[in-house]
Design a protein around this nucleic acid. Structure first.
Lengths: 334, 334
DNA sequence: CTGAAAGCGCTTACAG
DNA sequence: CTGAAAGCGCTTACAG
């Protein structure tokens, strides 16, 4: 394995000159430049990332923490993972991907050992145990999902309240006066998934303002429970003309469940939901929905994180940014 | 940030003694041990991973290369990613997760810069451009998927030939004499996805031996093309009584497509496929299928990789291991 | 435009 | 049982 010393020897210059030629941090004469390039090519030299990290105190890696709870729907998670990875690479960072069951311990481990320059937390809940250790870390952190205390961390999330209002408005405008709402599973609420109640509370509040009826129910996270649940809800709410589904697992199974029941959309029931374009494609979903924008959220989080890594002072105070929802009309409401 | 020198000073010992206390590589007196532990606790010291890596030439990280081709079905990929991450962590390794479009370049980058101790390649194709740079690397590599040249690398994959034979045998045993086979999309074959032809060729060979008819067709990777395709195939093969689906995207959409067409399974058509238990759960799939065992494959690959990292000599010659398929009867054939 | 030297934070023979 | 010192492969003031 060639080192910078080998390159220096072959090129007949000092190690510092090679280093500067590599970084471009000071000007090098054309001849020296050429000899160094030739030596690098001859030896197949690549800078040792660990040694550079030790000298510069920059690893050029960010940590990405993702957990796979059983009440969560993995395919939706993947959208965020992809966008974070892509954004990181584009900015020159590698991604240390951590899926430990003990998320708080993992945050502590990778930050205190200086394995990463910053950390992105996915699917952050209200009382997320990963948040405190991240706040205590030397490195900056960016969250996707809203914790109770956002101090010292940049937070990005979809505006779930506005999303709910947008969907209620949409259905109200079409004349619906009784709506079923399928929320995330009860476990998600218990675990502190704030997006659950942010959406539900806003929907209820909005419906109340219009004087229309809304029936909130918890969703299920797996088949066949999903089908059983939806059928029970539909049996109990026969006069409802529309359904808002705010749950990935349920909406993914919904076409099957409704077809089996003989419910035609939108003729018998209007359906509106919240998911990403890619998610909809993967599950062949035909529903009008608020775009959940995982690609945008991942990108924003990484960009802000890197900004803060590069210049902690200039990045300014931490932000809590809710991105505006966008309704994709796919004709499943009438 | 406390260093090992700070700990040594506070504990009143030398840095080497602290290091040995940490590693347990030589015995330390009880009293010294205690003073060091106290100093570590007081300072909140954690070993700097980069410095340790530089000194030991071990990063304790492995690279995981995954690509998201548009003709591939991301949810299936996730199964492998999860199992590799879990297995790595269990063995004390972190995962550098790389999704670069330029896979060959990424392999070169992370290996030549010594960012990882070994590399796992996912979804390896026949002429995979990532294989050559990995073979040329200092670090060992483990592949999931079969390349044309396996020299110097450990390879793990499902036995797709045996899987196909198992499914044909199963249907033949139930009396079927004309079978439709949906293979992966044509792009996958062109890209060199060997699992496509390994499965198809074996199925055709087996069917030929029994003297039964089999109609191979390419699948599609997205809706609505999947539905159009399946309908066209069923129109063209009206006398077929069974269908084998060897394509994630198609099988995921199949319940919808068949229900829309009014085809009941297994009454009108027997259906058998190949996917993992988790995948089936996510898509509510009711089909008898060969278990694709992503968890097992990921674990095997990582275990072998780590064995080779720890003792390259003792790990023996590289292996090509096809794991035996297992049929999960879910009652979709008759 | 270039070099010699110190330093990043560890580990590990070598000595005692 | 413990310490002093060299070394891992870089970067970057400091000097000229």
């Amino acid at each position: 394995m060639a080192t910078i010393g080998d390159v220096a020897r072959v090129a007949g210059v000092s190690r510092s000159t090679v280093s500067y030629a590599l970084s471009g941090k000071r000007s090098i004469s054309g001849d020296t430049q050429r000899r160094i390039q030739a030596a690098i090519a001859e030896l197949g030299f690549t800078v040792n990332a660990g040694a550079r990290a030790l000298a510069t105190a920059q690893t050029m890696s960010i940590g990405l923490l993702s957990q796979f709870h059983q009440d969560e729907f993995a395919p939706a998670m993947l959208q965020y993972i992809r966008s974070v990875c892509d954004a990181a690479r584009q900015l020159g960072y590698d991604v240390l991907f951590v899926t430990d069951g003990d998320g708080a311990g993992a945050v502590k481990r990778i930050t205190s050992s200086n394995q990463v320059d910053g950390v992105v937390l996915l699917d952050v809940t209200h009382a997320d145990p990963r948040v405190a250790p991240l706040r205590a870390a030397r490195q900056p952190g960016a969250l996707i999902g809203l914790p109770s205390d956002t101090a010292g961390l940049d937070v990005f999330d979809l505006d779930f309240g506005e999303s709910a209002r947008m969907l209620v408005d949409h259905l109200y405008g079409l004349g619906h006066r009784e709506i079923i709402l399928i929320s995330p599973p009860e476990h998600v609420f218990e675990r502190g998934g704030a997006y659950g109640w942010r959406f539900r509370d806003a929907a209820i509040e909005r419906a109340g303002r219009y004087g229309i009826r809304i029936h909130p129910h918890f969703g299920e996270s797996q088949q066949p429970a999903i089908g059983v649940n939806i059928n029970a809800v539909l049996d109990a709410r026969k006069s409802a003309t529309a359904m808002i589904v705010h749950n990935d697992a349920t909406v993914a199974a919904l076409p099957i469940v409704l077809q089996a029941r003989g419910v035609r959309v939108p003729d018998d029931l209007s359906v509106a939901s919240l998911y990403s374009r890619d998610f909809g494609r993967i599950f062949s979903l035909p529903y009008t929905a608020v775009e959940s924008s995982p690609d945008k959220l991942g990108r924003l989080a990484v960009q802000q994180l890197v900004r803060r890594i590069l210049d902690p002072d200039q990045a300014g105070p931490t932000v809590v940014k809710f991105i505006a929802p966008e309704l994709m009309d796919r004709g499943s409401t009438t």
